[in-house]
């Protein structure tokens, strides 16, 4: 089951440049929330702060409060490794492990977490691949093919399966379909729609139709600030802020 996310006063920096200004956002459990905004407005930075990936960049740091379910992500006792295990992430460019088979790609996270039971692992791998709508295409070559031998769209679904295998509570997706063709994109969108039964999904997208199709809530970012955050419908039909309106009507961006 997914859990909700509460972000309060989140600031982020790259060296001396502040790229997020005091973000407050409450993400509903078991829903899809989209993050939109022009290039460079801090969307990626924002989702990377949610699972503490941001701080893996040299000189980058974040401050503020992020609560994912009961977990205090930036609390003093919090362990980034544990945070990242419980909050899965899918990146813009598919990044499967090229030297591993399809099976090992999906099982990678399980193995990292000390999972040894072969039979259960088989089941989890199958379940994750099915959830990611990739099972039918790869079930005959699980051990024969490498992760890199798949097509771009398949690779991205493999990455989703890999993230799902460790059973995260939240799934963060940073433009998961931006490198894909329309058919693969619609498969991924379909998948995101299915996923919200089990997970809380936060998706960054450049594509406003995509946000409108998959997300119940949408947040609009501009220059490191959250300008407006509401039901997707509201954002796209009657935005409260002029800047949001300008953006979604394509007057700038």
């Amino acid at each position: 089951m997914g859990v909700g996310i509460e972000v309060r006063g989140l600031n982020a920096w790259y060296g001396k440049n502040q790229s997020l200004n005091s973000i407050d956002m409450t993400v509903a459990a078991n829903h899809v929330t989209a993050v939109i905004g022009p290039s460079g407005c801090g969307k990626s930075t924002y989702v990377r702060c949610l699972n503490r990936m941001h701080e893996t960049i040299p000189e980058a740091r974040a401050e503020g409060s992020v609560k994912v379910g009961e977990m205090d992500v930036y609390g003093s006792g919090s362990d980034p490794v544990e945070v990242r295990r419980r909050i899965g992430m899918v990146f813009q460019k598919p990044n499967p492990f090229p030297t591993m088979s399809i099976y090992d790609n999906v099982a990678a996270g399980l193995k990292l977490n000390g999972f040894r039971n072969r039979k259960q692992m088989d089941e989890l791998v199958e379940r994750s691949l099915k959830l990611a709508a990739l099972w039918e295409e790869v079930k005959d070559s699980l051990h024969k093919k490498s992760g890199a031998s798949l097509s771009g769209g398949q690779q991205q679904r493999l990455c989703i399966a890999r993230a799902l295998a460790v059973e995260p509570e939240v799934l963060l997706m940073d433009e998961p379909a931006s490198a894909l063709d329309p058919i693969s994109t619609s498969k991924i969108e379909e998948l995101i729609f299915q996923l919200k039964q089990h997970y809380t999904v936060v998706i960054v997208t450049h594509n406003m139709q995509q946000a409108a199709r998959v997300a119940e809530f949408t947040g609009f970012f501009l220059m490191g600030s959250l300008i407006e955050y509401d039901k997707t419908e509201k954002i796209f039909t009657t935005p409260a802020d002029k800047r949001t309106e300008d953006y979604i009507t394509g007057r700038f961006g």
Partner: peptide, 21 residues
């Protein structure tokens, strides 16, 4: 590529596991 490192880290890996895998 950096994205290989990020892929491993995002699965909840320690630094050493990231380097190894």
């Amino acid at each position: 590529p950096q994205n290989q490192r990020e892929a491993v880290l995002a699965l909840g890996a320690t630094r050493w596991e990231m380097i190894r895998m």
